[in-house]
Design a binder for these strands. Structure first.
Lengths: 144, 144
DNA sequence: CGCATTGTCTATCGAAACGGTGGAGTTAGC
DNA sequence: GCTAACTCCACCGTTTCGATAGACAATGCG
């Protein structure tokens, strides 16, 4: 599962992408439009500021805006930033590899092999999509 | 992330698949071979028993074995059982749908749209692979 | 029978993560 | 210098997680 924080982060960034080049967007505006607890959102946006995804302006008429064009912010990046990794197990991360506790040697762990393959597939999709892309709200579901 | 419990579950079932039709495998044998805390494994295997994936034999020479041929146990099934859902957000689950807290109306939530698509892609892979399939331990990584 | 072996069940526990908030401080415009 | 904004750090209550304890039940063997 994505943590609530990661979900808020993505929605907040989507909101900023929607208003790219409209000047600073106030925190309250984002919080209200996206239904995110105001105070929690300050934490999130500060963090995104530190990570270089958003820039903020203080004082009257201040707010937040994307530091990059939406097309340059890919969903994969956002998730890696907030969550550390795309992988579903620590040992299957390409960028933030960590050994699992109580596991087999990695070279012979089939769970890891499977999760590496899955990670790569997820990454292919998430790194293809950026904040500029339109999103299918209800993808067709073929029962399988 | 998959919980430690889900990971133990998958490795335990893989172990049973490896010894399919060899008679009951003792809990201790699984725990030792797979490096899983013995006591915790009892909880896991009992649960898998209740779910119908394994059958157990008590008493001397007892143990556990798969209730189905390995080919009929798909990774997607296991994850759905232990974790409730394949999706990365509750509202993007096909089988255990739940509304998210503090979200937008689902019909207009782009995060949900994206996560539905991702879920379907993950499901396609995880429901294709079963405990009988060989697994690539080190899939090649094409940096993207 | 009676003992050893092995699985079953329920309750519980400590630690960590999670979601969220308080409050003092800083910057900028008017 | 007042007010509207963002910044930062510390904290806090809950829930989840990983794991264990301990009493109980079934099976096989001699």
């Amino acid at each position: 599962m994505l943590s609530q924080k990661t979900r808020y982060t993505i929605r907040a960034l989507q909101h900023l992408a929607d208003h790219y080049r409209e000047g600073p967007i106030r925190l309250d505006a984002i919080a209200e439009a996206q239904n995110i607890p105001r105070k929690f959102l300050t934490v999130i946006l500060s963090e995104m500021g530190r990570e270089g995804l958003v820039v903020s302006t203080r004082g009257r008429d201040g707010g937040y805006e994307l530091a990059l064009p939406p097309v340059d912010i890919r969903y994969g990046d956002i998730i890696r930033l907030t969550r550390g990794s795309l992988a579903l197990v620590p040992c299957a991360s390409r960028n933030a590899h960590e050994h699992c506790q109580n596991c087999l040697p990695e070279a012979e762990c089939r769970l890891r092999g499977l999760m590496l393959t899955l990670r790569d597939e997820m990454a292919a999709m998430l790194d293809r999509m950026s904040l500029a892309d339109p999103i299918t709200l209800e993808p067709p579901f073929a029962e399988g």
